[in-house]
Amino acid sequence: MAKIITVTSGKGGVGKTTSAASLGAGLAKAGKKTVVIDFDVGLRNLDLVMGCERRVVFDFVNVIQDDIRVQQALIKDKRLDNLFILPASQTRDKDALDRDGVGRVLDELKQDFDYIVCDSPAGIEKGALMALYFADEAIVVANPEVSSVRDSDRIIGILNSRSKRAEEGREPVKQHLLLTRYDPDRVEQGDMLKTDDVLEILAIPLLGVIPQDKIVLTASNVGTPVVLEDSSIAGQAYQDAVQRLLGHDVPMRFIEPRKTNWFSRLLRRSA
């Protein structure tokens, strides 16, 4: 039976889609049959980040409203046999996802997959609530920055009160914090919240810290999930996060400033 994992954040632009794509691809690479679903109706981008935008024929809304079978809408990834994408609709209205319909599609996918990763839209409106409603686990993506942390706290509250698990009084949604765009140099200078500061405020377990890395932009330019960029630090940090999601104990990496000589450090500090 599949596990439903929702990637959410409240605030936009913190790396939800990037993270959903990478965690999905990482789980598939680890041998788990995985589908990543884009819940951002009207503003779909998961297809682009995962490099399958030209192969979209049917979408999530077609499956719910138009008698299209979910297998017809799934796009199989070209790099990983275990990886599938269910794109969001680009044109329909935001109310196209109703709870019964979404539940039906998820139930069907549960039969076939090990992991269902839901990429939530930003905000706390209907689309975001729908993406988290059915979650077994949630990955809260945050940047070490005041507005993102504040919004993360809101979304954690919503997970605790508005999920199906909360409504039914079952075991709560298991939550994980994924801190992205982390800059160890700025943390050391005292200009960026450090991991422990964010953990102290949000008080949910840490899944991973993804360092600021130029590869995130270049990988999205060509439609490759960052996690598949083996030589990059962000890619390796995502690989570590996937291992932790699978229950393995992996030490945190890339959270200390990179070792440099005193001269370049001085230059960087005074820049």
Binding site: R150, D153, R154, G157, N160, Q189, I201, A203
Partner: peptide, 29 residues
């Protein structure tokens, strides 16, 4: 040099408590 991260943390601690009280939600303690 002022360490602005400390200010960020202090401000967040306060606002998060207020938000939680206002919404009645919040990661329960």
């Amino acid at each position: 040099r002022p360490r602005t991260a400390d200010a960020a943390k202090d401000r967040l601690k306060l606002i998060v408590v207020r938000d939680r009280a206002a919404t009645g939600e919040g990661p329960d303690f």
